[in-house]
């Protein structure tokens, strides 16, 4: 007799069961019971946001080069666990070819964003030639804690496509995984837990989007939302809840698994621009400017 795995939540680098004590069955398209997953609750959202907030300062404080290496390490770990992801994707209904493609694209996307981690600042920032005797420059800075509703169409690639651009910019995330197919997300959590990503940087919740999203979007300590295509009513409700603390809300009209769904704009969506002024002393006899 096969032992069924119970997938737990991933919060603050730990794998707790949901506070609610509930779980739900993850089934294959053919109706086969694959595993049990935690049905996350309000309190799990609260705990995840708390963990994300706690981790944010030191994550943003790491050097960009270091974040890049950590993301690249994820790619290496994914590669090593490729077989497990392929199995899960196939169990969830993909054929081998599309499952292989999804895993390989996911790995590629990790490598892609690992490379961006110490470069987007150069492109998003600027030195601004102000008319007064001041040095003036703008740099991108993490927004803070980003709440993510992951792609509900794909189990792995969409997740990675949404989480990584926020992550490399120094944000920490609380992700509501694909409701029907959360297995890859939790397996990915196991990858993260054994890689160099500090606990709390990525937090993953499974369960019903409609139950957890209102708490996440109303949470006053969440700075931004990244919402993959979901039911319009849910999405609007989230936008309304987000107003209270003026969360930055990015709604994706299309799922993010397309090849083109990567790039600088996905990073800049979760960056603030900070501009700093400082006087430039005029040295006698000299002339200069920026």
């Amino acid at each position: 007799m096969e032992i069924l795995k119970t997938y737990k939540l991933y919060i603050g680098g730990q794998f707790p069961r949901t506070e609610s004590g509930r779980s739900y069955a993850v089934v294959s398209p053919s109706g086969q019971h694959l595993a049990n997953a935690c049905q996350g609750s309000k309190k799990d959202v609260r705990n995840a946001v708390q963990a994300a907030r706690k981790a944010q300062g030191s994550w943003a404080g790491k050097s960009a080069f270091n974040r890049s290496q950590i993301i690249y390490r994820i790619a290496e770990m994914l590669e090593a666990r490729k077989g497990q992801f392929l199995e899960e994707l196939q169990a969830l209904g993909s054929d081998l070819k599309s499952a292989t493609q999804e895993v390989e694209s996911s790995i590629d996307r990790c490598v892609y964003y690992a490379g961006w981690a110490d470069k987007f600042q150069t492109l998003l920032g600027s030195v601004n030639p102000v008319a007064s005797s001041h040095f003036n420059f703008s740099v991108p800075e993490a927004m803070g804690v980003v709440g993510v509703v992951a792609c509900q169409q794909t189990a792995l690639l969409g997740f990675i496509s949404q989480v990584l651009p926020a992550l490399i910019g120094g944000n920490t995330v609380v992700v509501i995984a694909n409701q029907k197919s959360p297995l890859c997300a939790i397996t990915l959590a196991e990858v993260l837990a054994t890689s160099d990503v500090p606990g709390g940087v990525v937090n993953i919740l499974t369960g019903e989007v409609s139950e957890m999203l209102p708490t996440l979007s109303a949470h006053m300590d969440v700075n931004a939302l990244s919402i993959a295509p979901i039911e319009a009513k849910l999405q609007q409700k989230a936008q309304e809840e987000a107003i209270d603390n003026l969360k930055r809300v990015r709604i994706f009209a299309e799922p993010l698994y397309a090849e083109s769904a990567q790039g600088l704009p996905y990073i800049s969506d979760f960056q603030e621009i900070k501009t700093t002024w400082h006087p430039v002393e005029q040295i006698a006899g000299g002339a200069g400017g920026y």
Binding site: S132, S133, H134, P279, E281
Partner: peptide, 12 residues
């Protein structure tokens, strides 16, 4: 050592 520093641009 107590002499405060002077910012030239602010002075201007």
């Amino acid at each position: 050592a107590l002499s405060p520093s002077i910012d030239q641009i602010g002075t201007n």
